[in-house]
């Protein structure tokens, strides 16, 4: 039986879909059989981020209303033989799937795949409840902004209420320079407030825009810092201990700062 992990955030635009795509591609790149599920019905995007939008024939609601078999709706990635996508419906709304159907779907996918990763829609309404219905673990994505962390806190509370304990936190779009200048909340600040386990820190990186434009996950890019950060997330997800990247470009200077900065 595989593992079902939901990627969620509460706030929109913090990088759920990018995270889902990169974790999926990263796991597949390490030889795991992975299925990505786009639960954002009506506003699907995972297909575009993966560059698979022109291969969609059936979608998640076709499976739940039994218009087609589950295998027919799964789209094989063009780079990894082990990576599959179950796309969301674009011309329907969130109510076209219910939590029970999602649960059954996840059970079916677990039989076939080692990892099932669900891209949750923004918000805390039915789309969110659907997305988490079949999940066993959760990843919460946030950015170092007051609004995003506040929403992450709310989501963590809702996940706990739904018996999804110990969410794993990813802080996306961190700008080390701004943190150093005191103009952005640091990882420590965020962890301090949310009190959950950190599984990844992704630096703000223009390569994410470039690779997303092309429909290729940045995790495949060996040169970029964000790609490296996502590969580390994948390792930690597999239970490996990996040190967090030193995002400070000025090594000596930052160490000096740490000494002075102590309370």
């Amino acid at each position: 039986m595989g593992e079902v992990i939901v990627v969620t955030s509460g706030k929109g635009g913090v990088g759920k879909t990018t995270t889902t795509a990169n974790i999926g591609a990263g796991l597949a790149g390490r030889g795991h059989k992975v299925c990505l599920v786009d639960a954002d019905i009506g506003l699907r995007n995972l297909d575009v981020v993966l560059g698979l939008e022109n291969r969609i024939v059936y979608d998640i609601t076709d499976v739940t209303v039994e218009n087609c078999r589950l295998k027919q709706a799964l789209i094989k990635d063009k780079r990894f033989d082990q990576l599959f996508l179950l796309p969301a419906a674009q011309t329907k709304d969130k109510t076209s799937v219910n939590p029970e159907e999602m649960q059954k779907l996840c059970l079916d996918l677990q039989e076939e795949f080692e990892f099932v990763i669900i891209d949750c829609p923004a918000g805390i309404e039915q789309g969110f409840r659907n997305a988490i219905a079949g999940a066993e673990r959760s990843i919460v994505v946030t950015t170092p902004e007051v609004s995003a962390v506040r929403d992450a806190d709310r989501i963590i509370g809702l996940l706990e209420a739904a018996e999804l304990r110990d969410p794993m936190l990813i802080v996306n779009r961190l700008r080390p320079k701004m943190v150093r200048a005191g103009d952005m909340m640091s990882i420590d600040d965020i962890i301090d407030i949310l009190a959950v386990d950190l599984i990844g820190v992704i630096p703000e990186d223009e390569m994410i825009v470039v690779t997303t434009n092309k429909g290729e996950p940045v995790v495949m890019d060996n040169a970029s810092l964000s790609g490296h950060a996502f590969r580390n997330v994948v390792s930690r997800l597999k239970g490996e201990e990996v040190a967090f990247l030193d995002l400070d470009e000025q090594g000596f200077f930052s160490r000096l700062w740490k000494v002075f900065g102590k309370k």
């Binding site: 560059g51 939008e53 022109n54 291969r55 969609i56 024939v57 063009k78």
Partner: peptide
Amino acid sequence: PTQLRIANHITRAPD
């Protein structure tokens, strides 16, 4: 088109 279908034929632009 993202995808073009006629009857039971399905095509898309080459990658």
